[in-house]
């Protein structure tokens, strides 16, 4: 399994974990790349929890490593930020 597949899997698993922790439900059929994050069912606190879980699990927070703030719109963009900035890539 490649590093990229690992990151995507971790994000998808943690996304469901964050939904559960905030008593939210996935409002789309599945987490495909074109899903707009704001319509996914996870709210802003949920995203904070997701980033915190991923920071513990993957050992890095790409948003804190960036020089400029970037706010991904779709799930695909979110995953791509983690893949691009992963220290192991």
């Amino acid at each position: 399994m490649t590093e990229r597949t690992n990151i995507r899997e971790s994000i998808t698993k943690s996304f469901h974990d964050a939904l559960e922790r905030t008593d939210s439900k996935l409002l789309v059929d599945n987490l495909s790349d074109d899903i707009v994050l704001l319509q996914s069912g996870l709210d802003s606190l949920g995203f904070a929890i997701l980033v915190a879980i991923l920071d513990e699990e993957l050992g890095f927070d790409p948003f804190a490593m960036m020089d400029e703030p970037v706010y991904p719109v779709t799930f695909g963009e979110f995953v791509s930020i983690y893949e691009k900035i992963s220290p192991t890539e």
Binding site: A48, I49, A52, I53, E56
Partner: peptide, 8 residues
């Protein structure tokens, strides 16, 4: 607060 957020 991240550690707190994860554990609620």
């Amino acid at each position: 607060s991240r550690s707190m957020l994860i554990r609620q």
